[in-house]
């Protein structure tokens, strides 16, 4: 029995969410007196996987693994899990985890918990995992009843600890000759935004209170001054003031940055659903009755057009003095 963690490389580095998943998996392994093995496709410096707690790293080798096709990736993980005798398989709850983990869980008849936010507890035969529900308004503890288990870990739920050791690294040849997917990749479009709001520690978001797309300059100035990404409310994306990939909320993306600054956003519940996992929330609104203040840590009542330029100046001088 061991714990297997699927990890990925992005822009030449191990993804942050992968390191979190390895931390998580190695803690489970420690509780169960076994070890954690990380698997990864492609070549990169995998030192951090060892530091994050993996005792072994398997580099999966097969050309069919170059795209995110669940038929190929699932078969590859299944082979690695079987070779390692792994019964618990961990992913990050990101686009990759959502594409692959459910298929793998169904194949292995493994009970699956998606979006874990805390380390599992193991008491005798009872294996329990905590996760968020209702976009963070509640949590639930799930018991996984099956011998095999698949867990995806919600990104940003724990600080990464790189206090482990050195992992033994080996290549692992995957045989996918018998697997043929009808899916053909035609095009991959890389995100051109410098910093995606999904990865950013700080996100500055604007709503209808900003009146029009021409006023986003100051939002971008503030984002730049703080090294932040930008986001927006749904009407702003619907009116094409901002691109759709910036839309946060129930029908857009859910983000959980360390700091979320909402400017000219009223704080409708559907908006909150996408941002209330943020660690610190700042609300700037000229209406002191705006509902968002009830869900904020810091608030400023006032006109965004006066406040933002002053904030930009303050942020710049703060950064200059760091």
């Amino acid at each position: 029995m061991s714990v297997l963690i699927y990890t990925e490389i992005s822009k030449g580095k191990i993804k942050k969410s992968s390191l979190e998943a390895v931390n998580y998996g190695s803690k489970i392994a420690a509780q169960l007196n076994t070890t954690a093995t990380a698997i990864i496709v492609g070549d990169a410096d995998v030192t951090d996987l060892g530091k994050a707690g993996a005792k072994k790293v398997l580099k999966l080798k097969n050309d069919k693994l170059n795209s995110l096709d669940s038929l190929y990736v699932t078969a590859a993980i299944e082979q690695a899990a079987s070779a390692e005798g792994a019964t618990i398989i961990i992913f990050a709850h990101d686009f990759t985890g959502k594409a692959i983990a459910p298929r793998l869980a169904a194949r292995l008849k493994a009970g699956m918990v998606a979006g874990a936010v805390d380390n599992p507890t193991v008491a005798g035969d009872v294996f329990s995992v905590k996760r968020n529900l209702f976009s963070g308004k509640a949590t639930a503890v799930y018991n996984i009843n099956s011998a095999k288990k698949v867990i995806t870990v919600l990104p940003g739920s724990f600080p990464i600890e790189l206090t482990g050791g050195t992992a033994e690294v080996a290549d692992f040849a995957v045989n996918l000759d018998a697997v043929n997917s009808p899916i053909k990749v035609k095009e991959v479009k890389q995100d051109t935004t410098e910093l995606s709001m999904l990865d950013a520690d700080i996100v500055i978001s604007g709503g209808r209170g900003l009146k029009g797309p021409e006023n986003w300059g100051m939002v971008e100035d503030l984002a730049k001054a703080l090294g932040a990404a930008t986001a927006c409310s749904r009407p702003v994306a619907d009116m094409h003031w901002r691109p759709h990939h910036e839309h946060v909320g129930q029908t857009g993306f859910a983000i959980r940055p360390k700091l979320y600054i909402a400017i000219g956003i009223s704080g409708a519940i559907q908006h909150l659903a996408g941002v209330n996992g943020s660690k610190t929330i700042v609300v700037i609104n000229n209406d002191k009755e705006a509902p968002f203040f009830k869900s904020a840590d810091y608030g400023i009542v006032g006109d965004a057009f006066e406040i933002i330029p002053k904030l930009v100046a303050a942020a710049k001088s703060f950064k200059a003095n760091q």
């Binding site: 493994a110 963070g136 009843n145 009830k294 904020a296 400023i300």
Partner: peptide, 19 residues
């Protein structure tokens, strides 16, 4: 394969510090 053992409401933010 899985069962929910318990639910819990997430405590909301309590005080917004006004600046």
């Amino acid at each position: 394969l899985t069962t929910v053992a318990s639910f819990k409401l997430t405590p909301g933010r309590t005080d917004c510090k006004m600046i």
